[in-house]
Write a protein that binds this DNA or RNA. Sequence first.
DNA 1: GGTACAGCGGATATACTTATCGTCAAATGC
DNA 2: GCATTTGACGATAAGTATATCCGCTGTACC
Lengths: 151, 151
Amino acid sequence: MLSRTTEYALRAVLYLAKSGGRPHTTQAIAEAVQVPEGYLAKVLSTLARAGVLNAQRGPSGGFTLARPPERVTMLDVVDALDALPEIKECPLRLPEHTPVLCPLHRRLDEMVTTMRRTLAATTVAELLAESVEPRACEFPPVAKPTVRGRG
Amino acid sequence: MLSRTTEYALRAVLYLAKSGGRPHTTQAIAEAVQVPEGYLAKVLSTLARAGVLNAQRGPSGGFTLARPPERVTMLDVVDALDALPEIKECPLRLPEHTPVLCPLHRRLDEMVTTMRRTLAATTVAELLAESVEPRACEFPPVAKPTVRGRG
DNA sequence: GGTACAGCGGATATACTTATCGTCAAATGC
DNA sequence: GCATTTGACGATAAGTATATCCGCTGTACC
């Protein structure tokens, strides 16, 4: 339903929110949330461009949340990527379906709207708070001392 | 959100429901609902295999609805293709996320469930009934065109 | 049986999403 | 300045959804 890319982005944002304010590198996030590092790099860049994350280069750099978790919604993340379609006209472009959509596309539009509302109503902070009980959305331990370089 | 294939399928089913019980060929449907004929052929086959349509070969053959429109829901069509994901476990497969999902995926699962309910609650017959006229309670912001087609 | 119609199924092409890789540019510390 | 860290960006590959093509099979009618 939501793309894999969006799933990755949500996981990454949640991880950053949970891990406090200091920057985390792409590599660290990728290992923690189990997402291909090279691909995650692009996703994180997109989130930074959209203003959801801050990017900091150089030693002890990385990504941080651009706002406190209470002010980042799931919709912010979803919209940063490409996300939800707007159904504002019938794909057939029949004149009689504008501006009032035909019943089929009215239904579909309503579903999208409902999703938007749900996403907009849920902040990252809420997700974190809920995850205290039952057991948190823990991310796998990063036990392995990594060798530099990719892969 | 829903795939293009699903959109095609919904249009085709709606067309068949609207056009009465006699068989319609792939070509006729494709022209009517503006979908690439070769591709639609596969979609219609899938719908027939799923029991939503009946297929009849030979002269004056084609596709018909397998049940009266009152007993075909949008969900029947969507499910016939591949459609909505089931989010029954966290993609990270963390044991502590089963059987209770983490808050993130619980939200996503709820959204899918809501969509399913909406789709299941809407029959093809309802869509047809509504498409006769825009509902009285709706006031399009633009002057109404004189001629009105069907939806 | 023969012929025309229309769906069936496999092979192939195109487009978009997802993933990988290499090179560059900015930040930090010496 | 120079070396190192780390994100930015572009090119490319792999995978999946979408679309096209063509020969085959079942059906109706004569």
